[in-house]
Design a protein around this nucleic acid. Structure first.
Lengths: 326, 326
DNA sequence: CTGTTAGCGCGTTCAA
DNA sequence: TTGAACGCGCTAACAG
């Protein structure tokens, strides 16, 4: 591969002129421009972007941290980011961490290393303190509510959602309400939800039950398995918030094939407004995953572009979609 | 951010020694090593990877081309790649192209630009000729059958799958067989499938019907909509190959709620062995998406590592999973 | 409008 | 075991 110097020689100009042509600068005579373009074509020249990145201190690449790309929740966020990236001519570095703290640290280091210009963290296991320590090296956006830190935050209010959903179930006469979650420990969103669960039920005069907080539910099979699990309980809930419509669908399908009725025996509220919820008539929460991804990406991008002086915090409203599972 | 020179000064050594410490080279006295490490800590130094990339001519980054990450088919492949990447300390650049040829070209250019060391193309709209032109700049793997070209190829035999599935339906007494697809035109896999569809049915003495080739089916909602579409046809199939279990599930659920029976009125064979196929008892093809991704990634990686002299071609076997929808 | 020159930050001969 | 010096390929003052 030839370099810029060889192009300059071949075209009979200086490297500066070549660089100017490469970067569409003004003040290049038409004749020299043509000569340079001709040399580029003839020698099959292509710029080495690593040199450009080095000198500019920028890569137009933004990192994305998430545990697993094959979960609807994250794939949808990623899709939103990717569309935005396409629009603004950015690249996306996908860092599937499987929630391993060391992998998350590696990505933060990439920010420090200048491999990426900014970072979107869809879900994390590191502490906010540890994340914040890297804010000095580039804009970081989290897809969760974060306050009073130099980090951008694009989120929906999980607390309010749970409050609303639980109250709705309560008004429909349900008194034995439980919920499911994905990751066991330390998830920021799980903490918020648990808090809302406890607060709301107590405020309504009900009783939160920790054995009705079911974790490890990721896909439709987990939802189906949940039915047996509940049936084996001495006391079981009569309503469930299920964080993920695939899981909710699995639960409903398995329950029905077991002769149970939804919403008769179990009222179900799903999450994400996935396509399957429309097909099965599942009442669900549209938590605007794609938009969260897009907005989180954009908060990073706009800071890089200097359009935003500092981190932004943006709460997106959710939509409660009533269908037939309650 | 300090650079290597400042560290050298602070530690009272030369930049060479600092570089040696940074890269774990031997022949550095314990005393100097400690001094360097101390200086690195004190000045909060971090290497600028872009300089390393420039000088090494390598980024340890592999690009991934796919149309949309929020399709099970691609998300699952990507997951396989990401796991492998994690294992081998590579980064993944996600390039969601939405099948736009220009975006695919941009990614190929990144290979030439040395932004990425290699490329995995999960699905393409460019011609193989155009892709092949970039093979000189780094290893490229496609997730489809490619012969006699300097490109790696990791795939399952779509032709054989269709042959097997159609024959199976035929043996079960079905004579009016159709199939669904995602993308309309120009998809290499669609072409293979169409060919298998025509060949197999003709060989069996049946008749392929072009109006029973249904495209634009991506998610569960499309599957549900398909039912109405078929019912509106003067002559409709009694069996369908549906490329994607979500789509198959939508079809089955909608058909049943319409009072139709599966497999009574329609026999259905799904694809991908997605979790939903187990829950609904859908007969399906396990096409090993995650492994395809992993193997494709690895073919690129091993070429970069010099473990493979040239491109490899690898066909993975599929599994036919019989459940209750036929 | 054009060219000379000095870096960007780092790895790596080569000689000591 | 160490360091001086060169070069990776490119951009951007600065001077003309």
């Amino acid at each position: 591969m030839p370099n810029i110097k060889q192009i300059a020689e071949a075209a009979g100009v200086s490297v500066t002129t070549v660089s100017r042509v490469l970067n569409d600068h003004p003040y290049v005579s038409e004749a020299k421009r043509k000569a340079v373009e001709e040399a580029i074509r003839k020698l099959n020249y292509s710029r080495n972007m690593n040199a450009v990145h080095l000198i500019k201190g920028t890569t137009r690449t933004i990192g994305v941290v998430l545990p697993r790309i094959n979960l609807y929740y994250f794939a949808r966020m990623m899709e939103g980011m990717a569309q935005e990236a396409l629009l603004h001519n950015y690249q996306l570095m996908l860092c599937q961490t499987d929630y391993r703290p060391d992998e998350e640290r590696k990505v933060l280091e990439m920010l420090r290393n200048k491999q990426i210009d900014g970072l979107v963290i869809c879900s994390r296991s590191l502490s906010l303190d540890e994340v914040e320590a890297y804010a000095a090296y580039g804009p970081i956006a989290l897809c969760e509510a974060v306050r009073d830190r130099p980090l951008s935050s694009v989120y929906i209010d999980h607390y309010a959602i749970f409050q609303k959903a639980i109250t709705y179930l309560w008004e429909k006469g349900r008194r034995r309400i439980g919920f499911t979650a994905g990751r066991r420990r330390n998830s920021p969103s799980l903490r918020r939800r648990l808090q809302a669960y406890n607060d709301t039920l107590l405020a309504l005069g009900g009783s939160p039950r920790q054995e009705w907080v079911l974790d490890g539910c990721y896909d439709i099979g987990d939802g189906a398995a949940l039915v047996e699990h509940l049936l084996a309980m001495p006391e079981r809930p009569d309503a469930l918030l299920i964080t993920g419509d695939q899981v909710a669908a699995g639960f409903i399908l398995a329950a029905r094939s077991r002769g149970l009725e939804v919403p008769g025996d179990f009222a179900v509220i799903g999450f994400d407004n996935q396509p399957i919820s429309a097909v099965l008539g599942i009442t669900t929460i549209d938590n605007r995953l794609s938009e969260i991804g897009a907005r989180a990406f954009d908060s990073v991008r706009s800071q890089l572009a200097g359009q935003q002086p500092g981190p932004v915090s943006e709460e997106l409203g959710f939509r409660f979609i009533k269908r037939g599972s309650v």
